[in-house]
Write a protein that binds this DNA or RNA. Structure first.
Length: 485
DNA sequence: AAAAAAC
């Protein structure tokens, strides 16, 4: 989705233009502001159906333009309800978008805001980990569209900061991921607060039996839209594997970054602590890097992502919080510092690069103990990944710049060993940074400031697909107990 | 096994 997506319309309708949908001029203006002319296949299919008011069950992979496929018709359908009054009483929440992660909520909200920028419709995003007050203030002034993570939304409901009684459109984005994360009870609670008569849109990367059951419970005679999705990975991604000693993994990652002079590289770690350590190791090696994971404060997460997008840092080391749904423009390379435990996650991770026709590299380092994980991955993607040669890499020993050795060896080191006075990071708090780690300028996210039109985001974020969806133990029971809506 | 999400 670089400028005008005139290509890669495989299962879609290549000649369709946004102008064919009969969208309001304000919306078309926002689209042309961003240089969009042709809808992606899912947009081409979904937009007319959503405009008709029908429920939709959509299956779409990362990079398919999912967000616009629901945002544009929402804005169109809500436009008659828009008004310019400052009185909160004149504004009611009419569309609700639920997402599994905070970053995804932010991204969706950025897109909605951009698409609605020439309309009087107001939108906001609410999610946890941040002060309730600014969110509360915006909600109380009145908005038509709310994008939220479930927990914080319920929090606002309990505090009577928001009423969901006027919601006429509900979107569940990455529904399979929400189930994975145990959001079903929260979803149930939220849906119980909505009017019975409403339009429901559900998006999911997978069509597991649980998802189908959820759709059967929450959706009303839905039309199913499926954009070709296979477990085969995007062919525009070049995948390479490097087998190395476990202890050398981070040195190899460092080497790869230097050898290729990588500027925008997303590195995945299986653990939060591993992500922090690798980021610190790279920083101490003189590479501009930050970590993003669930033990970071939300401010730090936002700051890290922002710094990465702006190019202030070259390397973002992430847990799977970033594996799905993050849309970073023109990401040329992803590195797996750990192979994921779940083979499906490999697909999600490397799907962060090579988006929408662009090419990308997905490099993975692994060691002996990962052979089984690797076998699972290759089985899933039905291909053998190229084994790469490390040229110019000298295995290092000893001079490891003060960071800890990765991993723990059977009967050997443990997490509690902290050479050279390093402390383990559990919950990282904001506060004085260690010397030499330059404090980044304070970010000033747009959603903290009510109604100040921000610069239009670059493009439609297409939230990623989610994983194979191992249901929680109680899931079946919960699903069994869902009322038919 | 790990990660994510409300206080």
């Amino acid at each position: 989705m670089s400028e005008t997506p005139t290509t890669i319309d495989a299962g879609g309708a290549p000649t369709v233009r946004f102008a064919d949908f009969g969208l309001a001029p304000e919306i078309e203006r926002a689209l042309s502001d961003q240089g969009y002319v042709h809808p992606t296949p899912i947009q081409a299919q979904a937009i007319p159906i959503v405009l008709q008011g029908r429920d939709v069950m959509g299956a779409a992979q990362t990079g398919t333009g999912k967000t616009a496929s629901f945002s544009l018709p929402i804005i169109q359908l809500l436009l008659p309800h828009a008004n310019t009054s400052m009185s909160p009483a004149r504004h009611a929440v009419r569309a609700l978008v639920l997402t599994p992660t905070r970053e995804l909520a932010i991204q969706v909200a950025e897109n909605v805001k951009a698409y609605a920028q020439h309309t009087p419709l107001r939108s906001t995003v609410v999610f946890g980990g941040m002060d309730m007050k600014p969110q509360t203030e915006i909600l109380r002034r009145g908005v038509e569209i709310v994008i939220a993570t479930p927990g914080r939304l319920l929090d606002h409901v309990e505090q009577k900061n928001i009423s969901l009684a006027q919601v006429q459109m509900l979107v569940m984005d990455e529904a399979d991921r929400m189930l994975d994360m145990g959001f079903l009870p929260d979803l149930q609670r939220i849906i119980n607060l909505l009017p019975k008569k409403r339009q429901n849109l559900m998006f999911s990367a997978t069509f597991s039996p649980e998802i189908k059951k959820l759709a059967g419970s929450f959706l009303n005679d839905p039309l199913t839209i499926e954009v070709a999705r296979s477990n085969a990975t995007n062919t525009s991604i070049t995948q390479v594997l490097y087998k190395v000693d476990e202890e050398q993994k981070r040195n190899v990652v460092e080497h790869l970054i230097r050898a290729r002079d990588l500027k925008q590289v997303l590195v995945f770690s299986n653990t939060k602590i591993g992500a922090s350590r690798l980021a610190r190791y790279l920083e101490q090696a003189g590479i501009k890097a930050s970590a993003i994971h669930g033990d970071k404060t939300q401010q730090e997460r936002i700051a890290a992502l922002d710094a990465f997008k702006k190019g202030d840092i070259d390397v973002l080391v992430a847990t799977d919080v970033a594996a799905r749904g993050l849309d970073i423009t023109d990401l040329p390379c992803v590195i797996n510092y750990d192979l994921p435990y779940n083979a499906e996650d490999y697909v999600h991770r490397i799907g962060r690069t090579g988006r929408a026709g662009a090419t990308g590299d997905a490099l993975s380092v692994f060691s002996d103990k990962d052979e089984r994980l690797l076998a699972d991955i290759e089985k899933l993607i039905k291909q053998t990944i190229t084994r790469g040669e490390l040229t110019g890499f000298t295995p290092s020993r000893g001079h490891d710049r003060g960071a800890e050795r990765p991993g723990e060896r059977r009967g050997g080191r443990r997490e509690t060993d902290h050479p050279r006075g390093e402390r383990p990071e559990r919950t990282e708090r904001p506060g004085p940074r260690s010397m030499g780690a330059p404090r980044r300028e304070k970010v000033d996210p747009w959603f903290l400031k009510p109604y100040e039109p921000s610069v239009a985001p670059r493009k439609d974020a297409a939230p990623a697909p989610a994983g194979s969806g191992k249901p929680k133990p109680k899931l079946a029971a919960l699903l069994g107990g869902l009322p038919k809506q």
